[in-house]
């Protein structure tokens, strides 16, 4: 699933090693050298192996455009590849249990090398989003999700979109800051359904 970022790195790194000489390195050379130096500066710890530094196509492309909007054709390619890889629910039901969804949204642990691999894994959604009105400790890296379903309507299309977005945010917004929770194996399918319910269940405090 994850392609190695650059089998060509060796050659480029060798060329880039000629830093400090008359010719200044190109932008691409600097990027390649940065990736190489970065990888050599880490050690595996707990559940975090060095393979976590290998970039897939999406990460590689998004690094190249570094937060700026990628060109239209690149963005479309990223969104298409990510959309195609979404694993939709076999039973066609996108909503799980919103109460569990709230717990998942609050849980900040999971996937860090300091975390027990058998321990709880959450989405840490409140780190970036306002969600229920009761929770005042919320971040602003992402937009507010308060009244998510109420504002958009509770159609099946909307439920599918919410599920898809949580599963793989890049399918809808190339180079999104949001992690690809289902795609990257952070949350299970049931957990993704539960968080979808938090946003799309009319009974959820988000929509009250």
């Amino acid at each position: 699933m994850r392609k190695l970022a650059g089998v060509y790195l060796g050659a480029v790194a060798a060329a880039a090693a000629v830093f400090g000489c008359a010719t200044m390195p190109t932008d691409a050379q600097t990027s390649a050298r940065a990736a190489a130096v970065l990888k050599a500066s880490f050690r595996a710890n707990g559940q975090a192996g060095l393979d976590r530094l290998d970039q897939d196509d999406t990460q590689q492309a998004c690094t190249q455009y570094a937060g700026k909007t990628p060109p239209k054709d690149v963005a479309e390619r990223i969104e298409k590849t990510n959309l195609e890889s979404i694993v939709w629910p076999g039973d066609g039901k996108y909503l799980g249990d919103w109460k569990n969804g709230e717990r998942i949204a609050q849980e900040g642990r999971g996937k860090q090398y300091s975390d027990d691999p058998k321990g709880p894994v959450g989405g840490n959604c409140y780190a970036c989003h306002q969600i229920t009105p009761q929770e005042v400790s919320y971040g602003t890296i992402g937009p507010s999700l308060y009244q998510f379903g109420k504002l958009r309507g509770y159609s099946d299309t909307m439920r599918k979109y919410a599920y898809g977005k949580i599963w793989n945010a890049d399918a809808y917004a190339a180079c999104s800051n949001m992690p690809r929770f289902g795609h990257s194996g952070i949350l299970t399918q049931q957990q993704v359904k539960d968080v979808t319910a938090l946003l799309m269940d009319p009974e959820s405090p988000v929509n009250k």
């Binding site: 390195p25 600097t30 050298r33 530094l53 999406t58 990460q59 998004c62 690094t63 992690p179």
Partner: peptide, 21 residues
Amino acid sequence: ALGEKMFVYRGGTHDFACQTC
């Protein structure tokens, strides 16, 4: 120059770079 590039390097399970936050 290397630090500047590393700052925007997307990686890990969550696709985070320093720039993300």
